[in-house]
């Protein structure tokens, strides 16, 4: 076991915010496209008719398929329950969390968690943990890859409940640092993952845009569905500085730029805007689900919003 906090709870468990989990409790991450699974249930599987093992009941929520209602339970208790199976789906999701130095940026306007401002990386940690928890909870297989210039750790997707702990431990142990080489990592992973699945990328994407887009295209080429969670800090979007400042590169500390921020503010914002727009267009063209996340907004709200939106679109 890892470290514990003051309440005797393992440190990695902090990544699972009960409040956040409560908000996404009724939501399921449903693959929008075709995934390679066995269960004809929540996910459309190319392998239809494959039997599954019953696992547990879950209370019916509006939107669940009426065919999945366990009518016997309804007969006994007059309540609607859905039968859930161990291998309900064969959705394999891989969460790619950018752990480069740039992700370590903590803005003054970021959302707080337990009184602390969230860095982009911390924000990504919470996002990854929540998504992993959600998917494990749905019996989906989820894996994790952390990287900077190289893949730091790769945890293959598993759907066991205990796998969540492995992922959370890895997330908790990971620290941001080093430079970024997104395209290279993405290309590597695209080659590495053979089964089609969902690739969730959590990153600020501070790298060569065209390279990134080509790498994303590589994933798409491999029939992976991509959920791109673009995490940026509020300061990176507003550039609120007005006095002479010495900007130190978080990825290369020796790299510094001294300037009057006002002199480049508009230019900077225009470039960021162009970057984001280009990214969005590129994602749209590749049918990549692109989600902008500002650390100013609480990650759970953003996540819940996204999931609700995704479900609404899927159904």
């Amino acid at each position: 076991m890892g470290k514990t906090d003051g309440h005797g709870q393992p440190e990695y468990m902090q990544l699972l915010d009960p409040e956040a989990l409560g908000k996404i409790h009724r939501l399921e991450l449903i693959a929008r496209g075709v995934v390679e699974g066995f269960v004809s249930g929540r996910h459309k599987s190319p392998y239809k008719g494959f039997s599954v093992e019953f696992a547990e009941h879950r209370e019916y929520v509006p939107g669940d398929n009426i065919r999945d209602v366990d009518w016997r339970v309804w007969g006994r208790s007059d309540r609607y329950y859905i039968k859930q199976y161990i291998e309900e789906t064969n959705l394999r999701a891989l969460i790619l969390l950018d752990a480069s130095g740039s992700m370590g940026y903590t803005g003054r306007r970021s959302a707080r968690h337990n009184g602390d401002r969230l860095s982009k990386f911390r924000y990504g940690q919470f996002l990854a943990a929540s998504l992993a928890h959600l998917m494990i909870h749905q019996q989906d297989a989820v894996g994790l890859a952390t990287f900077d210039t190289d893949t730091r750790r790769y945890i293959p997707p598993r759907s066991r409940a205990s796998h969540l702990r492995v992922i959370l431990q890895e997330l908790a142990a990971c620290r941001p640092g080093g430079e970024t080489s997104l395209a290279k990592i993405f290309h590597d992973l695209a080659e590495r993952i053979h089964r089609r699945g969902l690739v969730i990328i959590i990153s600020d994407l501070f790298d060569e845009l065209e390279e990134i887009l080509r790498a994303l295209h590589h994933f798409r080429y491999r029939k992976h569905e991509i959920l791109l969670l673009h995490v940026l800090a509020e300061e990176e979007l507003t550039f609120p500085f007005d006095g002479w400042s010495l900007f130190r590169n978080l990825e290369r500390l020796a790299h510094r730029i001294q300037l009057d921020p006002l002199s480049v503010k508009s230019e900077y914002l225009a470039r960021v805007r162009r970057f984001v727009r280009r990214l969005e267009i590129g994602c749209g063209q590749m049918n990549v689900d692109y989600v902008r996340l500002s650390t100013r907004n609480s990650f759970d709200v953003a996540l819940a919003h996204y999931l609700a939106h995704r479900m609404a679109r899927t159904r």
Binding site: S102, G104, F241, L246, F247, R248, L250, I257, L259, E267
Partner: peptide
């Protein structure tokens, strides 16, 4: 000058180079 640890250096650098 205030020291700012900064992530989006690529945009800053590009802006400064052009201006």
């Amino acid at each position: 000058a205030q020291l700012v640890d900064w992530a989006a250096m690529q945009f800053l650098e590009e802006s400064l180079t052009s201006r």
